[in-house]
Structure formats: C-alpha cells, structure tokens
Simulated assay, not measured.
Amino acid sequence: MAATSTDLPPARYEFGGDEFIFVELDQEMSLQANFKAMAITGALREQNVDGIVDICPSNASYMVRLDPDRLHPVELADELRRLEHSAGELPADYVVPTRIVDVPVLFDDPWTRETLLRFRDNHQDPSVTDLEYAARINGFSGVPELIDAITGAPFIVTMLGFVPGLPFCYQMVPRERQIEVPKYVRPRTDTPERAFGYGGAFAVVYPVRGAGGYQLFGIAPAPVFDLSQRLPDFAEHIAFPKPSDILRYRAIDRAEYDRLRGEVEAGTFRYHTRPVEFSPSEFLADPDGFNRRLLEVL
C-alpha cells in the first residue's frame, strides 16, 4: 500500500521527570509534522495503554503524561518510537474523521482597531494598522487582497493552548503561500474577547479578554470558549474547537455581525458545521482541489 511520506528528521524524545515524555517531530511547523503528530497520538489513544494519564498533541510535537507506578517511562518511550515508524508513515487510505466549520469574522472592526491603536508603540510599524502591515510584508497589493487570501482557503486546528479554548490554526496551502507575520515587539496588556489574530503562520480567535501579542485583524461574533456552557455548541465541552477541525474563516459585514451577536446573546447561536473525512494524501497531492471540495460541503 502506498504511503504518504512525511520527510521529517528523526524525532527527539525528552523526559520531564518521571511523569512526562515530550516528543518533538520537527523544529519547524509543517502540515506533514502535524499530520504525523495526529496519527501517532490517535494510534496511542486507540491502544488504551494502562498508565497513560493524558495525551497532548501540539503543532509539530506532542506530550504524554503517565503514572510511573503503573507504566515505566522507558517502556512508554520505546512504544512511542515504534509508533513513530509505524503510525507515522501514513498509508494512502489514512483518513481523519473530522468536521468543517464556518467561522464568521468581521475584519477591521472598531473594537480591535481601537485596541491596536492604543498599543502602536508596541508594534513594528506604528504608522499603519496590523492589517496594512501584514498586507505589505506578505506582498499583497492591499488589505482586501490579504483578506481574500485568508478567507480563500481553510485552516486546520493543529492544537489548543495558550489559554483554554484558543485554537491554533494553520492554513491548508503550500508553504510558499503561507501568510506569516511577527508578533508585536512587546505584547499588549489588552486584547478583546473573540479577537481574530495572526502570529507567525497561525490564525487564532482569542477565547477571553487579556494580554496578547498577535497582530489584530478582526473579531468573531461567536465565542470559541463558553465556561457557563450556555450555548448549544458547548453542551459537552467548554471549548468548541477540537484538534483536526477544519475552519473556514468567512468575511462578514457589520449587519451580519450584529445579527449573529444577537443570536449569541439570546442563546440560540449554532456554528454551521458538516462532518468530513480529511485525507492527508489527497490533500498533499492536490491542495487547491481538495480545499475546493471541502468548502463545497458547507
């Protein structure tokens, strides 16, 4: 059976005391590294090994917590190395059951604009907005072309972190088309809840108000985190996004933003989602064609 080669260097294994094993699959982020992390951690979950407490996949790495009284760390490391070579070489028919999600975003909104203007001294170029800066350094003709690029191809959730429920999302395009921006020179002490930000090659929606250093591009009307679990989408979990989710960020106007905010406040908002099977081999063979078929599902 043909396999999807990841072309990655050998993984690096480190012990964190007796309870943790950290595995770095690559020093830089790539879709191939994340696919490999998903495959290994997925196979490890299926084994239901006694003594494993938690499995935490990340962008290009993962960490496993264990109970050393039930499972020796060296034995687990040996099993992880075996999975690196077996589960890490993805068969051509390997698929990830997941979902594609429509995520509306109001770009260049008044709330994140007010915030970013308060922190221009923290920025690389205080003379322009974050959107204008990102468009320029990525070679776009202007902000509209940048927004078209962001909304033109979906993103995959590679991990949750930083604060509970924050989805790190990597755009599903070839590396030469990745949008990349640096973090602020000095982090802000304020970021609006639901702000849509970009840092490195990752897009995020901030779950709660707080500090942050990603460039601010807009705001989402719907939360990604609901501690009260008031909204239907949060009935089972306080965080809506899940690793391997595929998100389509969709530009909306102020009228649609206000309408959706009204649904959130009334407790009736639901994300528009559809179940899909994500095939890494099909995606890597034809990213644009695969993305078109994914977006047609919505």
Rank of each mutant, 00 (worst) to 15 (best):
E145C: 12
D258T: 00
R259L: 09
R230K: 10
E114K: 15
V181T: 03
S61K: 04
P207Y: 04
P241Y: 08
R45E: 14
T115M: 07
D93C: 14
A195I: 12
E28H: 12
P164A: 08
F35H: 08
D50V: 12
P207R: 05
R270M: 06
D130P: 13
T151C: 12
M172Y: 05
Q215Y: 01
V157N: 11
N122Y: 07
R248C: 09
M159I: 06
Q32P: 01
N48G: 14
D148I: 06
I238S: 15
P207K: 05
I219R: 15
P9A: 08
T6H: 08
V143G: 11
Y271H: 06
L71W: 03
E145F: 11
F234Q: 00
R82D: 02
T112A: 06
S86I: 15
D226I: 00
I21Y: 13
E114C: 03
G212A: 05
R177E: 13
S5N: 04
V103R: 02
L76Q: 00
G161T: 02
S228F: 03
P164L: 01
I55G: 06
Y198T: 02
F283E: 12
P174W: 05
W111D: 07
P97A: 12
P207H: 07
V204T: 10
P167D: 01
F162E: 02
Y13C: 13
